[in-house]
């Protein structure tokens, strides 16, 4: 299903500037419904409470890392099918394999550009 421009997106990153950057890019790409969380531990209850269509998360975060957030999402039947995009500076092969095995939908290495993000969203929502 092609990406619905009105879909609800949750951006998770412990760096405020990074959250704001991703939100602005998403807005610029035509997605106005973007919420933000500063950590996996903050994001998880938001996901449980709100019907999010898409999650974009960092890997390295203080309380709950992105990979653990991904595993928690996949382990819960209510939100288990939510598409997850990891946006991270972690580009080691074993990390990417670990994310793939945990069920990530795609993986963007920082620094990235708007075209890359747009292409990944199109790939996740063909």
């Amino acid at each position: 299903m092609p990406a619905d421009l009105n879909m609800k997106i949750l951006v998770v990153d412990d760096h405020e500037s990074m959250r704001r950057i991703e939100k602005q890019i998403l807005n610029d790409l035509g997605y106005p419904n973007v919420d933000m969380a500063d950590d996996g531990a903050t994001a998880l209850p938001m996901l449980m409470a709100g019907s999010y269509d898409f999650v974009i998360t960092d890997w390295n975060m203080p309380q709950m890392e992105g990979i653990d957030l991904l595993k928690s999402i996949r382990a819960d039947a209510r939100i288990g099918k939510t598409p997850v995009l990891l946006v991270t500076a972690e580009s080691k092969k074993e990390r990417i394999v670990e994310a793939a095995q945990a069920g990530v939908n795609d993986y963007v290495v920082k620094p990235f550009n708007a075209d890359t993000l747009s292409a990944k969203i199109s790939r996740i929502f063909p």
Binding site: M18, P111, F112
Partner: peptide, 8 residues
């Protein structure tokens, strides 16, 4: 905006 990407 994208240039701020590098700050992170």
């Amino acid at each position: 905006v994208m240039a701020q990407n590098y700050q992170d």
